[in-house]
Nucleic acid binder design. Structure first.
Lengths: 335, 335
DNA sequence: ATAAACATTGCAAACGTTTGCATTTATCTC
DNA sequence: GAGATAAATGCAAACGTTTGCAATGTTTAT
């Protein structure tokens, strides 16, 4: 085993050519004769050669790395372990890899405040994908103002100076609520945090559906975790009884937390209370009863995020884009 | 807004000193007078200066980056979206950040085969954390043979030439199975893939518990996903009826898939069939009935993985380490 | 006052690529 | 076969840090 790290110059010496030739050959530069290219590429493979990316990045000013920032509010408990967010991240990872880009994973802890300088001027990455708008967009706005390649997973209808890719949260909220109403619901709880970026749009959809049918809103503002949903529903049933017949939850995790509380008190789902979630995480299909939900097409979203980021690398201006959602009706809402 | 990227030399000119002085000052080198250090650090902050990491890495041969490889078999469906694995990754992310290290996320797609060369010689990272042993350890062994800093999340009792941190899977399997037996189970299914690294140990524990109580093994070998668990239990009930009274599942996701199949056929949990999972993901607590399980202390594991990796940076040899597991008894197994 | 020790800063080389330009070698034209 | 064009390769500078060593300024000991 050759424990000495091999570099371009070593290959060059072995092949009896200059380092420039090796460099160009490995980059498949047509300046180099095909025959020479093949020979050098094989030589490189044979010696398990791997470019020193530090040197390469210094010279080219390109990293081929994208920073992905999971953007969570400090206040809320919605943890970095949230299954939906992590699913989005892993889809992004796949989409980046397919473009030959690598993924530097960050959270708000590491990148304090000035993302543009830290990531871009610090040559850690060529661009940034922010996952989640959170309640506070100042960090994102500052980065966008600095003119760096940036794209955000969030609510695309938000007014912004940066491109946002995300589901049609308004339509999702509208469809979910309308679906419940069509199945006879009269008193529908909205369970979530209407202050939060994406979720406020879902709430708007909910409100619109209820207005159309002249129903009254019941907004229960909670942290967007299954635990607080569980606690909230428990408390509600204890203090005010079963005064509602449906719940539109702002996420599947929230819905599942609510479901547990209902089942524990023998409230029948969907007969006594119908339930719709949002996201379509794996558990929605596995829960019992299975959970109706608004499916977010994360895979498509991920490829789109990456595509829009790459477009910015070449100076293009890109716009926000809305992704279709889909109502998945399962057992929890059918009656 | 200053759109020109600022570098060390610019700061030096501004302050009327040499670049060496600035470099040392920003690294808090005691060679530089405290007063000068303070002044330069403030100047850097004022100009939002961020070191060009490419140059720095080239010069120092250090990246302060750790590659995290999610190690999945191509054959299995256990997806990169697996909630438990992602939870581990996010814990590792936190632990790394606390040490000032960054996390480069990779999967087996990007890093084809030769990890040592790709990541270490390619100066992408200083070390590697592999999440999951998978069925095939040749990649890991090759990297370990190359003598690079490496640590693996897996089953620590596996014979290996690299350090492994992980739960006591054997004991977990033993405790889970014993727990079921103590609650009266006579025919316990093992649901999982006994070929798979960590899971084979869980199976060994299961086998030992059954042997002690002179019970017969029933191993159902499946892909470790909730979907195949669901299908397997469905098929079993259809073809052979309810010939078992308990299930030890190799993971919570598998347990939840099984739970759904049972509930759909009105098999009572835990009365007809008691159920224990493994991992303690968030859903275990939220499912109904809540799922008894073996809790893996991922947070502690993550800090330990990082600690052992850092020790290798300074040349220390480190050993594998077993992490305590804990039986969490919830509704699914109490009767 | 002088030499020696110390504290502080600057000089310049090095890290390993990439690339504009110069140079060599091969091919073509008449 | 000579001159001109095209193809292939090499030279050397540059990317922005860090760091061994030299150089300067300051203090201490004699």
């Amino acid at each position: 085993m050759n424990n000495k790290k091999i570099k371009l110059a070593d290959l060059a010496k072995l092949a009896g050519v200059s380092t420039s030739t090796v460099s160009r050959a490995l980059n498949n530069n047509p300046l180099i004769k095909q025959e020479t290219r093949d020979k050098l590429q094989q030589l490189a493979k044979k010696h398990n050669f791997s470019l020193n990316t530090a040197a390469s990045r210094l010279r080219t000013q390109k990293t081929n790395v994208v920073a992905v920032i999971i953007n969570l509010d400090e206040q809320t408990e919605q943890s970095i372990g949230d299954p939906f967010l992590l699913k989005v991240v892993s889809e992004i990872n796949l989409a980046l890899n397919q473009q030959g880009l690598e993924l530097l994973l960050s959270n708000s802890i590491m990148a304090q405040g000035d993302w543009a300088n830290y990531f871009i001027n610090g040559r850690r990455a060529d661009g940034i994908i922010v996952v989640g708008q959170g309640k506070n967009q100042t960090n994102i706005e500052a980065a966008a103002d600095a003119g760096i390649p940036l794209v955000v997973w969030g609510d695309p209808k938000t007014q912004s100076n940066y491109p946002i890719v995300g589901s049609d949260n308004y339509l999702g909220g509208l469809q979910a609520s309308t679906h419940l109403i069509e199945h006879g619901a009269k008193n529908i709880l909205f369970l979530g945090d209407p202050e939060h970026g994406e979720i406020s749009e879902r709430h708007r959809g909910y409100a619109a559906a209820l207005a159309t049918h002249k129903l009254e809103q019941h907004v229960i503002s909670i942290d967007i975790t299954s635990r607080s949903a569980y606690q909230a529903i428990n408390q509600l049933l204890r203090e005010k009884g079963l005064y509602f017949d449906a719940i539109m939850a702002c996420s599947d995790m929230v819905a599942l937390g609510a479901m547990k509380a209902l089942k524990e008190r023998y409230v029948s789902i969907p007969n006594d209370v119908a339930l719709v979630g949002f996201d379509d995480i794996a558990m929605a299909d596995i829960s019992h009863p299975s959970l109706s939900t608004i499916k977010q097409n994360t895979q498509f979203a991920a490829t789109l995020l990456v595509k829009k980021l790459i477009q910015q690398f070449s100076g293009e201006k890109v716009e926000s884009q809305v992704i279709d959602i889909e109502l998945i009706t399962r057992q929890s809402s059918k009656r």
